[in-house]
Simulated scan of single mutants.
Amino acid sequence: MDDLQVFAHQVFEAQPFTRYIGAELASCGPGHAEITLRIVDHLKQQHGFVHGGDALTSEYKINYLRPAKGTHLIARAHAKGKGKRQAVCLCDVVAVGDDGTETLCAIAQGTVVAATS
C-alpha cells in the first residue's frame, strides 16, 4: 500500500496542470483516489462558479447537476472495471461549503487507456 501511495503521489506531482490549478492528491488506494481543489478566482467563470474542464481519456461523460460553489471541490473516483489496457472510472464531484456541507455538483464516467510506447 505504501508503494502504491508513493507512486500515485509521484505521478500526480509530475503533472504540470494539476500543480498549476492547485489540485492535491488527498488519499489513494487500490482502485480509488480523492483529489481536492481550492476554489479560487482564476478557476471561476464570469458568474462566479467553478469552470468545467476536460480530461485526456478515450471516453468521457459528465453530468453537471448544479453550479459548484463553496470553499473547495472534492472528486471521489472509483475504478469500476479494470483490465490490462483500460479502466472505467466513476467520479462524484462535491462542493464543500463554508460550514463543511457537501453538495453533489457533478457525476462523471471516463475510460482511461494505458499509454503504449
Rank of each mutant, 00 (worst) to 15 (best):
M1I: 07
D2T: 06
D3N: 02
V6C: 01
F7P: 00
F7Q: 06
A8T: 02
Q10H: 08
V11W: 15
F12S: 02
F12Y: 10
E13V: 07
R19A: 09
R19E: 07
R19D: 03
I21N: 05
I21Q: 06
G22C: 07
A23T: 03
A23R: 12
A23N: 06
A23Y: 05
E24F: 11
L25V: 01
A26Y: 09
S27E: 15
S27W: 07
C28H: 02
G31R: 15
H32G: 00
H32P: 02
H32T: 04
H32M: 12
A33E: 15
E34G: 00
T36V: 13
L37G: 00
L37Q: 12
R38N: 05
I39S: 04
I39F: 09
V40M: 11
D41V: 03
D41Q: 14
H42M: 08
L43H: 04
L43I: 06
K44P: 03
K44F: 10
Q45K: 04
Q46V: 10
Q46F: 15
G48F: 12
G48V: 07
G48N: 07
V50P: 03
V50A: 06
H51Y: 13
H51F: 14
G52P: 14
G52K: 11
G53Y: 05
D54T: 10
D54Y: 14
T57S: 12
E59V: 00
E59Y: 13
E59C: 01
K61C: 02
K61D: 09
I62C: 11
N63K: 12
Y64N: 06
L65E: 05
R66S: 08
P67F: 13
P67L: 12
A68L: 12
A68Y: 07
K69G: 02
G70N: 13
T71K: 15
T71S: 08
H72M: 11
I74G: 01
I74R: 15
A75E: 15
R76F: 12
A77Q: 06
A77L: 08
K80F: 09
K80I: 10
G81L: 10
G81W: 09
G81Q: 14
K82S: 06
K82D: 03
G83K: 04
G83R: 05
K84T: 04
K84Y: 05
R85C: 00
A87M: 15
V88P: 01
V88M: 10
V88Y: 06
C91D: 06
D92T: 03
D92V: 06
D92P: 04
V93G: 00
V93F: 08
V94W: 01
V94G: 00
A95E: 08
V96L: 03
D98I: 09
D99I: 11
G100C: 09
G100K: 11
G100F: 07
E102F: 00
T103I: 02
T103N: 08
L104G: 01
C105W: 01
A106M: 10
A106S: 11
I107V: 14
I107N: 03
I107K: 09
A108Y: 10
T111K: 03
T111E: 04
T111D: 02
V112D: 05
V113A: 05
V113T: 10
V113Y: 09
V113P: 02
A114K: 14
A114G: 01
A115C: 05
T116N: 08
S117E: 14
S117W: 15
S117R: 14
S117T: 11
